[in-house]
Design a protein around this nucleic acid. Sequence first.
DNA 1: GATTAGATAGACCGATTGATCTACTTGTCA
DNA 2: TGACAAGTAGATCAATCGGTCTATCTAATC
Lengths: 186, 186
Amino acid sequence: MSSTRPGPRERLLDAARDLTYRQGVHVGVDAILKQADVARRSLYQHFGGKDGLIAEVLRTSAQEDRYRTVMDAAGEDPRARVLAVFDELERITTAPGFRGCRYTSADLALTDPQHPAHTEVRRYKDGVHALFTDELTRLGHPSPEAAADQLLVLVDGVLAHAVTRPDAHPARAARRLAVHVLDARD
Amino acid sequence: MSSTRPGPRERLLDAARDLTYRQGVHVGVDAILKQADVARRSLYQHFGGKDGLIAEVLRTSAQEDRYRTVMDAAGEDPRARVLAVFDELERITTAPGFRGCRYTSADLALTDPQHPAHTEVRRYKDGVHALFTDELTRLGHPSPEAAADQLLVLVDGVLAHAVTRPDAHPARAARRLAVHVLDARD
DNA sequence: GATTAGATAGACCGATTGATCTACTTGTCA
DNA sequence: TGACAAGTAGATCAATCGGTCTATCTAATC
């Protein structure tokens, strides 16, 4: 028995996830519809419009889960778990087709402050912040929240810088700084 | 005597610099022409097209000079000069109308790898890298190039993260890490 | 004063944008 | 069988995209 083809809604999300990452959020609706092999009407039925589709793509992209998985694979030690994220970043940024962070990209590209995507970007980054804060707390870090902010700056810095200067291997550079964040005793 | 109005070329660059920052590189040519109060033909005469205009905007934006000025105002000590950049970043990211790093934005928004803007983005970031390398060398840092890469990750991280989470004050968080970069003795 | 390069104004081009619409087909459940 | 919801196909819409065109005007140079 062949696996059932996903419904129009899922196909739209998949196509939009792929195309908005490779081409940016300014891809045409036509291109998304064509790749999803879906009727025009289905898009507006399910998501109300392009903006809704983009927001839903960000809401369901679950890059957070990827970091969580990497951490879990690194074992119990909070220190190792955090550093594993930066090892993963080295893989991500050197992989073919790397095009930066989709959340940062969307936040920068969408000029209208009212665009629903901004809410999802904020939610995502807050989520990663919580992820780091948990580890730092378990580590007994003196100021987990502030340290998590530092780690977030490093992550965003890696993903942004690697687009322009991948040969600088920003993930490795950031990993060395992450060690300082983890070992801070003040 | 009133100051002479700049020529069409300068007015185009000014308008494009303003609009591409506020609205992104996908602003329409019409909007740029209107704000510059310049004939359509002048754009294609001077820059060959929109792509050429955008590239020239990046080439002449001279954000590098801003960092240089800030450093010079901070005195002679390389340590103080580098940290002054992060103090400046705190001002930049909290100023009204802050919309992230125009170079990173352009690099992410322009999907075509052949777009002339990418060359200018790379040139700019290499320039900042050289700026930092100089200071680190004068400071006697054991590996100025690698440390400059770390500072660049911090700068890009601040400018990217501040777009989504300005309340985290990433510039301050990054400044604390910059101290570690400067004081590295290994 | 005549020539000429540079700027302006604006029509015009085909292509594409996001979105709405009607008409038809499909599958499901009552 | 009949009703209904969901999906498809595609025409159509006004608006905008980047770019080319002709025609006119202006200012400096010879």
